[in-house]
């Protein structure tokens, strides 16, 4: 549904997006991850037809975002980061306005339908300026849904919401992901992990990782340090773990013993479990230390920095 090929966007001398390539499939929520200023919003604006790419192509629902901008826009629902709304209009009037511009035949029942969907039916007649931040976010989402688009592009929809609202919104996005193509940007990585079927990690205009969050985790968990806790004296446990095959070293940490694998592609957990069970100690916890996307992100960025120190480092720095 979304295919991006070598997409480049330059603002004068500054290159915001440096030739990224990725795709998003229908029936999936694709997470677009990255710190602020990574190029997420720029990419999304290109995908919605708001601005043209400097080079490269992007196709949404089979249409080129530049050549068939209107066709693309017809099939995309977009929630912009700042959730811009007309504050002097009521929620229903606003949705009817957008619906009418989109050419919806009966905008009023449709607006009520969408408001119902986002749980705002009771405030349909309220002016938007009187609504809370969370409600406005929902009006914005309703706006993106009004024409039931096959593709939804949501730019940081959970920003500034309270925890309960965040949970509800994530649930809604997950639901929508079942029969829509959803591209969902966030800089909160646990959120992507929770909601997304696929993540694309972007930093400084470049994609640094992409894939299923579980696959990503698995590939990174290999070689990750392992935390081991058991009903045993810390010193004895450390000695035991250090002696397990595939473990390079082990230290006593805050919550237990931390084991460092011998090589990056080894997962020594099963061996450690076996060793502990053999001692008849009660194993209370064993997990890789890098298991969430924050860690993945940090890890990948760290590795990238290490690569940059390698011979071509000067070139890589110049590009950013």
């Amino acid at each position: 549904m979304i295919e991006v090929q070598n997409l480049v966007k330059k603002y004068g001398e500054v290159t915001a997006v440096k030739g990224i390539t990725f795709s998003a499939e229908p029936g999936q929520v694709t997470g677009f991850l990255g710190p602020n200023g990574a190029g997420k919003t720029t990419t999304m604006r290109i995908l919605t037809g708001f601005m043209p790419p400097t080079a490269g192509t992007a196709r949404v629902a089979g249409y080129d975002v530049f050549d068939k901008s209107l066709e693309v826009r017809r099939r995309v629902g977009y929630l912009a980061e700042s959730v811009p709304l007309y504050r002097d209009m009521t929620a229903r009037d606003y949705l009817m306005y957008i619906g009418e511009i989109r050419g919806i035949k009966r905008p009023r029942p449709r607006a009520d339908e969408v408001l119902e969907r986002v749980g705002l039916a009771s405030r349909a007649g309220s002016r938007i300026r009187t609504l809370s931040k969370g409600m406005r976010q929902r009006v914005g989402l309703a706006q993106a849904l009004i024409h039931n688009p096959p593709v939804l592009i949501l730019d940081e929809p959970t920003i500034g919401l309270d925890p309960l609202q965040v949970l509800e919104l994530r649930q809604l996005v997950s639901d929508l992901g079942r029969d829509h193509t959803v591209l969902f940007s966030t800089h909160i990585l646990s959120e992507a992990e929770q909601v997304c079927d696929k993540v694309v990690i972007i930093n400084r205009g470049e994609i640094i990782a992409a894939g299923n969050p579980n696959d990503l985790r698995a590939s990174l968990e290999r070689g990750a340090r392992v935390l081991v806790r058991a009903d045993a004296p810390a010193g004895a446990l450390r000695e035991l773990v250090a002696g397990v095959k595939g473990v390079q070293s082990a230290e006593i940490g805050m919550n237990g013993v931390v084991a460092t694998p011998a090589s990056a592609d080894r997962d020594p957990r099963s061996e450690i479990v076996q060793a502990v069970v053999q001692k008849n100690w009660k194993l209370t916890e064993i997990r890789p230390l890098a298991i969430n996307l924050e860690d993945i992100f940090l890890e990948v960025t760290r590795r990238q920095a290490q690569d940059a120190d390698a011979p071509q480092s000067a070139e890589a720095e110049a590009g950013s």
Partner: peptide, 8 residues
């Protein structure tokens, strides 16, 4: 920004 992503 919203208006300019509508089919108009």
């Amino acid at each position: 920004e919203v208006l300019m992503t509508l089919p108009m």
